[in-house]
Design a protein around this nucleic acid. Structure first.
Lengths: 190, 190
DNA sequence: TTAATGACTAATATGTTCATTCAGTCATTT
DNA sequence: AAATGACTGAATGAACATATTAGTCATTAA
């Protein structure tokens, strides 16, 4: 049996994008790691961006699985929410590819990398949206627009995790859970 | 009586920064508009950045007055909050200097302009923080950390106004007030 | 006959040189 | 004593040369 060339290319591309980012990865590099001719890549993928999207899609699917498995039906919506947010953050921080992409977007602003991260974040929001819908059905939370709610939850989490820490001491996970409870669940009104 | 040279310089600098931004403004330009020699500027201001800070300080003070006068003691905390947020947004949009600075930060990332906007936003947060403190004293809202609360309110407003509109239809002022009411005031919990 | 390849090309990116611009100084003028 | 603008060194960017690289395709190997 002959080797699966597409598989080799995908693995090589994953390695290279993780190591050098989008811009730093050349098609020749990928071909070399995969030990195939450069032309062979183009029999499976139209161009560099399509190859990148395939890699990213795999990572996003992996992330979705992580988020899914962090849900515990016996816990409350807000408990699960904190778990999901924490797990996806951890995922972002642990996966070399994600770290590289965030860095690349910040430092160079590579359009393909920006698009990739947008997809990634949009997937997280979509996942939260589904949890919100379920929580509404279960009457665990009030009726609200799930999309806006997911958007708010995600923005608020990002604000806590990355923007607040550039103003004051970093907030730990427990503190963030408390804040979500106070502001989003219970509300400020007396 | 001889003309007030410092005043002339400040007016000229305000004009130039508003018209051409920080980077686009040259000290020679300012001198020319003010009809003084370039060296004269340096008898009042150490350098370009200090001149810029003086101009910005004036604008920030003006903004604080606008925010202050939008407060109505007969209204609730959340009503006033919406007024303040709306007025400061309007201020940002109306004042040529602010528009230019936001544009410059986005397009070129001039450090002095970035610092300036940080100061501006920090001032808004500080103002909200004071309103939060008063509302806590008045027992209008629950006890909470005023700084974090102001931070959340501001981030949430920015999210609604500028980030949501790149995903879906822009939210009008009334809708944003509703959202604040639902998410921050009443909370999502059943 | 089909799949794989890598030399090739056009487009883009990067490095280099050099002229211009500009913030800040200071000797001269008012 | 206050004001000025010619001057300086550093930074910027235009213009050109060189190098890289995404994507193609004629050739090769299976």
């Amino acid at each position: 049996m002959t080797v699966d060339r597409k598989q080799l290319i995908v693995q090589a591309a994953f390695k290279s994008f993780s190591l050098f980012g989008y811009k730093g990865t050349t098609m020749e590099q990928v071909a070399k790691i995969a030990k195939v001719g450069k032309g062979t890549i183009y029999t499976f993928f139209q161009n560099k961006e399509e190859l990148f999207n395939e890699i990213l899609h795999n990572v996003i699917m992996e992330m979705r699985d992580v988020a899914k498995s962090s849900i515990d039906k016996n816990r409350t919506f807000f408990q699960n929410l904190n778990q999901v947010l924490f797990k996806t953050l951890e995922f972002r921080r642990k996966h070399e590819l994600m770290v590289r992409l965030y860095h690349e977007v910040k430092e160079i602003g590579t359009p393909a990398a920006m698009d990739g991260l947008k997809k990634f974040e949009s997937e997280i929001r979509k996942f939260i949206e589904i949890q919100v819908e379920k929580a509404i059905e279960r009457k665990e939370i009030k009726h609200c627009d799930p999309e806006i709610t997911a958007f708010i939850i995600f923005r608020l989490y990002i604000s806590f995790v990355s923007e607040w820490s550039s103003l004051r001491d970093e907030l730990d996970n427990e503190k963030i859970a408390e804040l979500f409870q106070l502001y989003l669940a219970e509300g400020l009104a007396m």
